[in-house]
């Protein structure tokens, strides 16, 4: 579904964020993208829907060359790519329903969206999606009245309502507590399986990634250094991705405290467990 070839991004400051990345993601597969801060994970995801303009390389969504599109065609292409954000990026002062319906903006004429008169199919779809993510009781609440987990569910519903072929997911759990993080990851993987969506999940919590995702891609300094099953993340591989660290030392129970995992890096017993 998604085919990235030789993707390069050089910022105006001269920093090279991506240095020749190749990645293929078939429909129905969820890929976890891991790597240290500043490795270019965020840039890679944003290059796919061109929130960040790539410097070189091509990106194909199905048969469509995203990098060659005009502004208008790019907007059409963006409808097929749902995006989910770290800090949720909901429009705080709009209601939950408006936030979810904003997923249809690419399909709707301006005056309809301005008057909030979406088609019956769109509204029904929005209700169904909100029901699926478990928020049917919060339709008329303002987004800033929700908890973190609920907000991320709204973010997911917004992306789903676009009717996407591909989900671009940027650190979906970084602002959530460990339990909610797992619920959100479970929801995302279930939804992708239900709807045969391809997805790239940018995630810094290696343990969580291994728990839910089968395929992991490791990015370091703008270069792919690992692409394989999550079982293959041996201490050597992790060193290749993150640099030198004692990856074999264990302490505590991973289930009890995912926060510790963030601070100290992934733990081998989990790596083997999945």
């Amino acid at each position: 579904m998604l085919r990235i070839e030789g993707l390069v991004k050089r910022y105006r400051t001269g920093d090279i964020a991506l240095d020749g990345v190749d990645l293929v993601v078939p429909a129905g597969e969820v890929v976890g993208l891991i790597g240290p801060s500043g490795a270019g994970k965020s840039t890679l995801i944003r290059c796919v829907n061109r929130l960040v303009e790539p410097t070189a390389g091509t990106i194909h969504l199905g048969e469509l060359d995203v990098t060659a599109l005009s502004r208008r065609d790019l907007r059409r292409a963006r409808r097929r790519m749902g995006m989910i954000f770290q800090e949720f990026a909901l429009v705080e002062r709009l209601t939950v329903m408006e936030n979810v319906l904003s997923g249809r903006l690419g399909y709707v004429a301006f005056w309809r969206s301005f008057l909030r008169r979406f088609s019956a199919a769109d509204v029904r779809g929005a209700f169904a999606t909100l029901d699926r993510v478990g928020l049917l009781d919060h339709v008329d609440k303002r987004a800033d009245a929700l908890s973190g987990g609920q907000r991320q569910r709204v973010g997911i519903a917004r992306a789903l309502l676009q009717g996407p072929d591909l989900l671009l997911i940027d650190e979906p759990t970084a602002s959530l507590d460990p339990k909610t993080s797992r619920q959100i990851m479970r929801l995302i993987t279930e939804l992708c399986a239900e709807r045969q969506l391809a997805a790239v999940v940018n995630i810094h919590d290696v343990a969580l990634a291994q728990l839910f995702l089968k395929r992991i891609v490791g990015l370091r300094a703008g270069v792919l250094v690992y692409d394989g099953p999550s079982e293959g993340l041996t201490p050597e591989v992790l060193t290749r991705i993150y640099g030198e660290e004692d990856w074999t030392r264990t302490h505590g129970d991973a289930d009890a405290d995912d926060d510790a995992a963030r601070a100290t890096g992934p733990r081998p017993e989990l790596i083997r467990a999945v």
């Binding site: 329903m97 408006e98 319906l101 909030r116 029904r124 169904a128």
Partner: peptide
């Protein structure tokens, strides 16, 4: 719940 069972209008 089938899709048809959901309301098809919504007002802010």
């Amino acid at each position: 719940m089938s899709i048809a069972a959901y309301p098809d209008t919504w007002r802010r």
